[in-house]
Write a protein that binds this DNA or RNA. Structure first.
Lengths: 199, 199
DNA sequence: TCCTATTTTCAGAAATTCCTGAAAGTTCAT
DNA sequence: ATGAACTTTCAGGAATTTCTGAAAATAGGA
């Protein structure tokens, strides 16, 4: 109930509690993660209980959920039986793990539902149209997913560089035609006489 | 309670109902959007009520929420007083709007909380460390946000091309040094003697 | 083995979120 | 101004999710 934290940390923890509940995770899980993220050293469950002021069992559940997301690392201190939890040092690693897990839990099931729907034979014009929409969505998700899988393989440093360049994305893109020469023109041809999108 | 939909559509609608509830939106709102997304023509509130089988007032609330996210377009048919709702034709437009709204509602408040925390003077070593972590997070969010803002400005067709190229991201990146010549070397220099990330 | 420190589970209490029907509000044609 | 067609609001009931304390499980040491 009552938190036991320096004010700076407390503001952060409360904020991520709220954010968490807008996403799929509960407020407490969000707070636990926020606390671990800021902590200088790994914390054990009792530390967390004491600092955040909710029940020991709630902390246990929360840590279990975070583990299932692979978001916390577990370690032991010599001569201490308790388990200590921490977050990855590299914050980009956290983003990577999050993206992977979300893909596994949300994207993949969605894709398979869509594929299933796409092999059915539509009975009416309405159904045919629905199927077309689903095909569009399937294509979009596949494209984004594949792209982000590639991205995730990059090392942190490389990724940051890429994003920094990306801020000048138009320019990267202007380069693209030149790129074809290098990459060997594997992607399908797409000329400027293809109609533009109607937004 | 009982839905009145062709089976193909129904599977899709149910799926996005579930997905919706994993994100911030409620099951019904997810279902309404899924239905509109597949619909051949704009639907009015009574159509939706009839097809999804929940109360008229719930549909009204749902549509209101979708409007607040700018995810539905409102239009009128001549000689009909009712309001008709539809989703954007271009599915990438939907992604764009979603990203913008999430930024407004989640990213911006987070950034301002972080900035606030970063100007405080830390009292202890622990607080100083916490502040450093927050600074890392602030940097990460800014980088990603700025990048995605740029991306969002691109037209659909351009964006798709870019993502397709992006699948060969390593190659794009190898090109980067060449790019500097073109872009005029505006980004800060970063040589290979800077240490790599330790993941 | 038994004891102790620690973690996990789980039934139900508490809190939150969602949904509905009834009533009020709007808008437009007459 | 009235009434018909339609939409929105909102109090409170229903459903879901979260949290807790008590009890059970586990693991290590004597």
């Amino acid at each position: 109930m009552k938190m036991n934290l320096p004010p700076l940390t407390q503001a952060f923890v409360l904020h991520f509690g709220e954010m968490g509940s807008r996403w799929g995770i509960s407020r407490t899980v969000g707070q636990i993660y926020a606390l671990l993220f800021l902590a200088e050293e790994p914390l054990n469950a009792d530390d967390i209980t004491e600092k955040l002021g909710f029940s020991r069992s709630n902390v246990s559940m929360g840590l279990k959920e975070l583990s299932s997301w692979r978001l916390v690392k577990l370690q032991h201190k010599p001569g201490d039986r308790r388990e200590y939890f921490s977050t990855p040092e590299d914050i980009w690693e956290i983003v990577r793990i999050l993206a992977e897990e979300r893909r596994k839990r949300e994207i993949d099931p969605t894709l398979s539902m869509l594929r299933q729907a796409l092999v059915e034979t539509p009975a009416t014009a309405g159904e045919r149209h629905a199927q077309e929409r689903m095909a569009e969505m399937h294509g979009l998700i596949e494209l984004i997913t594949r792209w982000s899988e590639d991205i995730q393989k990059l090392e942190t440093q490389t990724l940051i560089q890429l994003l920094e360049v990306g801020s000048k994305v138009q320019k990267v893109f202007e380069i693209k035609d030149r790129l074809k020469v290098v990459a060997g023109g594997k992607s399908r041809r797409r000329a400027k006489d293809e109609g533009p999108a109607d937004v």
